[in-house]
Design a protein around this nucleic acid. Structure first.
Length: 254
DNA sequence: AAAGCGTGGAT
DNA sequence: TATCCAAGCTT
């Protein structure tokens, strides 16, 4: 299956079944930088966090801080308070710091280098912002994409392994289209979140089923390769064995 | 390179 | 109940 076919299959599936009504995908006007603001805010909240968990927090933040300026001008304590319960609190501090940095600018940064300088934005989040908010062709590699790609190409080894990670990035880059990249990025995440799930994936209705190597090999459940059980630390102990010799029994009784 | 960071959901 | 893991980034 060529990259083009891969993209066409995923996009056709997205048009019919993709998620288009998530809170950060709607209810905003075309006001300048309102879209990247929402995409950025949602992407930060969604790091290692499920959609259902992040959603109420996103709605609260949008209500309290409808734009970058209001977030930048808020006391960091208020941001932290509204973040409480979401976890990974460094994200909230970085969010606030980044808001202040971007508020100083003319517009929301739209290049990879600029985005990577901002605290809390790594390669994948930068790719998500560029593709979803600006429709610029840039790959992502989040948990969903890792799951889809390790299965599609039957890539063994835990994704945290640097060689595996590098291979996955190369593959993601190779498969990311030039056109309709915003839809594509959302599509491959939707695929991973709704069909190509960790357990009980719905392979029978997957748009990639005819070429998915894991499925063709009947191996879907073994991808991504589970993290090998951490070797238990080996402790060496010296035992002092005390034995009661018969000889003690011969001592005079007191 | 590997570990730390938070909480809630799924098995 | 215990374990693994989730729209990762930072040090």
């Amino acid at each position: 299956m060529t990259p083009l076919t891969f993209q066409q299959n995923i996009l056709a599936w997205f048009d019919q079944y993709g998620r288009k009504d998530l809170p950060w995908q709607q209810n905003f006007t075309a006001t300048k930088d309102e879209k990247p603001y929402r995409v950025w805010l949602s992407e930060i909240m969604l790091q290692q966090t499920q959609v259902a968990t992040a959603t109420p927090y996103f709605n609260t933040f949008i209500e309290k801080f409808p734009d970058m300026t209001s977030l930048a001008n808020a006391p960091v304590d208020e941001v932290l308070h509204l973040w409480s319960g979401l976890g990974y609190y460094a994200r909230a501090r970085n969010l606030h710091k980044t808001a202040q940095m971007i508020a100083e600018r003319e517009s929301f940064p739209d290049t990879l280098d600029e985005l990577l300088e901002l605290p809390g934005i790594g390669l994948s989040t930068a790719g998500a912002i560029l593709s979803i908010a600006f429709n610029k062709s840039q790959p992502i590699l989040d948990g969903n994409v890792k799951r889809v790609l390790t299965r599609f190409k039957a890539i063994a080894g835990h994704p945290s392994n640097s060689a595996v990670n590098k291979e996955l990035w190369a593959l993601s880059r190779q498969l990311t289209p030039i056109a309709r990249v915003a839809d594509y990025t959302q599509a491959i995440m939707d695929l991973g979140a709704t069909l190509c799930t960790r357990s009980k994936p719905a392979c029978h209705i997957c748009p990639l089923k005819t070429a998915c190597l894991a499925r063709l090999g009947g191996n879907v459940a073994s991808f991504p390769t589970p993290k090998s059980a951490k070797a238990l630390p080996i402790k060496q102990l010296v035992f002092l064995l005390l034995t009661v010799r018969r000889f003690f029994c011969l001592l005079p009784q007191i």
